[in-house]
Each structure stands twice: as structure tokens, then as C-alpha cells.
């Protein structure tokens, strides 16, 4: 355990924990669009910025990627913090003016938001889907497009590796803007433009999971597919 202070409040935090989680536990509201408790941190949205005192000086830091350390002092509500968050939100709003999730957070952080009818549900490259697919599902069907020196692409985006996708829908579940859409019709699931055949529960007869997902689970666990044909509610 380490001793830290958040907004002057002294607490004992678990070693290895991040400042964002500690602040959340204290019910301090910190905006974020790319953080998830079960995933590695990514630091992309720059909305969870706080001030941290290091070597006697206050510096801005993404709270999600800042590990607690003995004697650490944190401010979550200073003018500098507010200003920095507002700029990040304003830039996000500039780029994705029609995305409701962005509009909400921008408005909350003091950006002037003009009313609109549509929700364009843009991908904001928060990396929640890629991390979920890699770290939780382990299917590796979603990756960032090549970037950096020598890349030719104009706008970065997420690459969908169709053969690797098992249709589990976890990406749609974690997506912060609704960009990843999942639809179900007539025993079929559509996600990222790939169509999956749904398996029927042996017991209740309802569609409950894509066949490819059951096959994937069978491959990784060694349990035969025939033993997986019962839905969660009937098990």
C-alpha cells in the first residue's frame, strides 16, 4: 500500500493501481472515453488529465496511465486540468461534431455545442475494441491500421481482419460511440459487415451464440462443440 493524496484528501492506495481508478473509488468524477477497468490503459482520449506533483512542480498527466507512488499528490479539479480537458474535448468535438458521446462530454466540459439532429457515431480511435479483442477475447480480429513513418494512409482507422472474427460482439459492447454496430436477423448476426450463423440452444431453442464463437471456444478449451450447445439461461 502507498500513501497518496487526491485533492488534499489522504488515502492509502494499492500498489500498481492507477490514479484514475483511485479517484473513481473516491467518487471523484473524471471524464474518460478510452478507459476500461479490465483492459490495459491506452491514454488516447486525454480527457482524464489531472495534475501530479513531481519534483516539486505540478504537471499534467493522463490519470489512467499514472501509477500511484508513495507521497504522490494529485489535483483533479484545478484550472489547468479543466482547461486541458476542455481543449481535448473541443478538438474531439471539432473532429466528430455529430457523435453523441462526444457532444455529451464536450458540453459537460464547457465546450459550446451546437444542436444537431443526427448521431453519426464516428470511430474516435479509443482502442477499446482492439484491446478487448486482443486481451479478453484473444481473437485478434481488430487492429490499428499501419501508421507512422512511411505510411500512406490519410486518416488512421481500425482494420477488421474478417477470418479471425468469431462474432462474439464484445467490440460492439465496449464501443464508446456506437460505431461498432451489431444486428441480428433470422438466426444471423451481422457485425463489421461479416455475417454469422447463430447456434440454437438444445434446451430452449433460442439463438444464443454464433457458431464460429462456439467453435473458437471449443478450440481454445478442448471442450467439444456438442457440449457447448446450451445457452447461459438453460445451463
Amino acid at each position: 500500500m502507498v500513501n497518496i493524496s487526491i485533492n488534499g484528501q489522504k488515502i492509502r492506495a494499492k500498489e500498481g493501481a492507477n490514479v484514475l481508478q483511485e479517484a473513481k473509488d473516491l467518487r471523484i468524477d473524471i471524464p474518460t472515453l478510452c478507459y476500461h477497468n479490465d483492459l490495459t490503459t491506452f491514454g488516447a482520449c486525454r480527457l482524464c488529465t489531472v495534475e501530479v506533483k513531481t519534483d516539486g512542480a505540478w504537471k499534467l498527466a493522463a490519470s489512467c496511465q499514472t501509477e500511484v507512488a508513495e507521497g504522490m499528490e494529485v489535483l483533479t479539479d484545478s484550472d489547468k486540468v479543466k482547461e486541458s480537458r476542455k481543449l481535448a474535448a473541443a478538438l474531439l468535438y471539432y473532429k466528430y461534431p455529430g457523435t453523441q458521446a462526444i457532444r455529451d462530454v464536450a458540453e459537460k466540459l464547457g465546450v459550446e455545442v451546437v444542436p444537431t439532429e443526427t448521431d453519426s457515431r464516428d470511430c474516435i480511435l479509443c482502442g477499446l475494441c482492439t484491446r478487448t479483442c486482443h486481451e479478453i477475447v484473444r481473437a485478434d480480429a481488430l487492429k490499428f491500421q499501419d501508421r507512422g513513418l512511411g505510411r500512406s494512409l490519410e486518416e488512421p482507422k481500425i482494420e477488421f481482419i474478417s477470418p479471425a472474427c468469431i462474432g462474439c460482439g464484445s467490440c460492439a459492447y465496449v464501443c464508446s460511440t456506437g460505431f461498432v454496430r451489431m444486428e441480428a436477423v433470422d438466426g444471423k448476426r451481422m457485425i463489421w459487415d461479416k455475417v454469422f450463423k447463430m447456434a440454437v440452444c438444445n434446451n430452449c431453442g433460442r439463438y444464443f451464440a454464433p457458431v464460429e464463437q462456439l467453435e473458437f471456444i471449443s478450440r481454445t478449451t478442448g471442450v467439444p462443440v456438442s457440449n457447448l450447445m446450451t445457452c447461459v439461461s438453460c445451463r
Partner: peptide, 12 residues
């Protein structure tokens, strides 16, 4: 072209 586009502030 060099900005990775990952964070909200740099590329935007």
C-alpha cells in the same frame, strides 16, 4: 503524416 492519430489532441 507522422502523428499516430491515437490521442485526441495531436492529430486533431
Amino acid at each position: 503524416g507522422l502523428s499516430c492519430g491515437e490521442c485526441s489532441v495531436c492529430m486533431i
